[in-house]
C-alpha cells in the first residue's frame, strides 16, 4: 500500500495538495501515481505568474511510455515552481510529497479546498480502481 500522509488533501486524478500557513497551496502527485507511471523522465510545470483554475491542466509528467496531465486542485496564481525537477525528474519518484513537489498556488478561493478528497477518501478510491 502506498504512502498517504493524512494531513494532505487529494484529487481523484492523483494530485496532492498541502495548504501552507501563508495561505498558499503546494501541489504534487501522489506516491500511488508516481508508482503507476514508473520512472519519470520529464516534468512540465506551469509558468510562474500564470493563473490556473481548479481542475484545469497545469502541467504534464512523462515516463518512457506514458504521459499524464497534472490538474490544478484549486484556482489561483502560480507563485513558485520546483525548478529542480527540470534536471532531476526522478525526485518525484524518490520523494513525491517532499522534494518532488511541483508548484505553489496563491489561492483565489480557499473554499475550493473543501472539494478535494481526504486521505481516507482517496485511499478508498485507489483501492476501488485496483
Amino acid at each position: 500500500m502506498s504512502n498517504l500522509p493524512s494531513e494532505l488533501r487529494y484529487l481523484s486524478s492523483h494530485e496532492w495538495l498541502r495548504v501552507e500557513d501563508d495561505g498558499t497551496a503546494v501541489v504534487g502527485i501522489t506516491d500511488h501515481a508516481q508508482d503507476a507511471m514508473g520512472d519519470l523522465v520529464f516534468v512540465e510545470t506551469p509558468e510562474v505568474g500564470s493563473s490556473v483554475s481548479a481542475t484545469e491542466e497545469a502541467g504534464v509528467v512523462e515516463s518512457v511510455k506514458a504521459a499524464s496531465d497534472i490538474y490544478a486542485p484549486v484556482s489561483g496564481e502560480i507563485v513558485a515552481i520546483n525548478e529542480a525537477l527540470e534536471d532531476a525528474p526522478e525526485t518525484v519518484n524518490q520523494d513525491p510529497y517532499g522534494d518532488g513537489w511541483m508548484f505553489r498556488i496563491k489561492m483565489s478561493d480557499p473554499s475550493e479546498v473543501e472539494q478535494t478528497l481526504s486521505a481516507d477518501d482517496y485511499k478508498a478510491l485507489i483501492e476501488e480502481e485496483a
Partner: peptide
C-alpha cells in the same frame, strides 16, 4: 515518445 500520437 510521450509526445507522439500512440501515447498522447
Amino acid at each position: 515518445q510521450a509526445r507522439e500520437q500512440h501515447i498522447r
